[in-house]
């Protein structure tokens, strides 16, 4: 469904992604993991058209995304849940959701849009209860739900999420990831960028490990989860022992 081949991204003269190739098949949940500065976010922004200066090839459903601006890519069916949520704080929850469907209003889908809002408030009941509240007054987890709901409003076929677990309580992380599993079961293809590698690999089909702009490991999520290298570098195995000791 999504094919990235030998992608190179630049910030000025600095090369942030140095020849990355990944593929996402229809119905898969793929995770990209890696430490800070490994290029995960850059990769996502390139796919979504927010970073125009890239070389190589990105194609979605056999169509190259080269030179397309974000609105065109959203219309093609890729939605991004940006890093740090980025909900529109002064606007109401409902307006945020409607903005997610921005590219659809021109196609006169008003009734479908209202139905989708109803569906999303079913998925995240809290958004329904707070529909008329400014998004900035929601808690972090609720804002993350709103960001996901907003991205879903564009009716994407591929949902790209940039660190949805960032800064959230463990219980809330679990809730968000559960939602992703549910969305996947409904047939949505998901590309999940995470620093919380363990949690991400547990729900993913396959994973890629990024390090300083390159893919250093890839494979089945289960294999990666048990891979010693990954454990050492990203999962922090001492971490678990630390918790076990306390529990």
């Amino acid at each position: 469904m999504l094919q990235v081949k030998n992608l190179r991204c630049y910030y000025g003269r600095i090369m942030a992604i140095k020849g990355v190739s990944i593929s996402v098949r229809r119905g898969e949940l793929i995770t990209l993991i890696g430490a800070n500065g490994s290029g995960k976010t850059t990769l996502l922004t390139a796919i979504c058209g927010l970073l125009p200066a890239w070389k190589g090839d990105i194609s979605f459903e056999a169509e190259s995304l080269k030179g397309m601006d974000p609105p065109a890519i959203v219309r093609r069916g890729i939605s991004l849940v940006p890093e740090g949520r980025q909900v529109f704080a002064p606007m109401t929850v409902l307006d945020n959701l409607r903005l997610g469907a921005y590219t659809r209003y021109r196609r006169r889908e008003h009734r479908e849009i209202e139905q989708d809002i109803a569906q999303i408030t079913e998925l995240f009941p809290i958004l329904g209860q707070r529909a008329d509240q400014p998004a900035g007054t929601l808690s972090g987890g609720e804002q993350q739900m709103l960001a996901i709901g907003r991205a879903l409003m564009a009716r994407p076929r591929l949902l790209a999420l940039d660190e949805p677990s960032m800064g959230l309580a463990p219980l809330m992380v679990e809730k968000i990831l559960d939602t992703l599993v549910r969305l996947k079961a409904d047939g949505l293809t998901i590309l999940l960028v995470e620093q919380n590698a363990q949690a991400a690999l547990k729900i993913a089909d396959r994973g890629y490990v990024l390090e300083t702009g390159k893919v250093v490991l890839q494979g089945d999520a289960g294999d990666l989860l048990s891979d010693v290298e990954v454990k050492r570098a990203y999962l922090g195995k001492d971490y678990e022992e630390f918790y076990d000791g306390r529990g």
């Binding site: 980025q86 921005y102 590219t103 564009a154």
Partner: peptide, 13 residues
């Protein structure tokens, strides 16, 4: 007004 980047991410030109 709130965030140009986030606006672009939802598909606003």
């Amino acid at each position: 007004h709130d965030s140009e980047n986030a606006a672009r991410a939802v598909g606003v030109g």
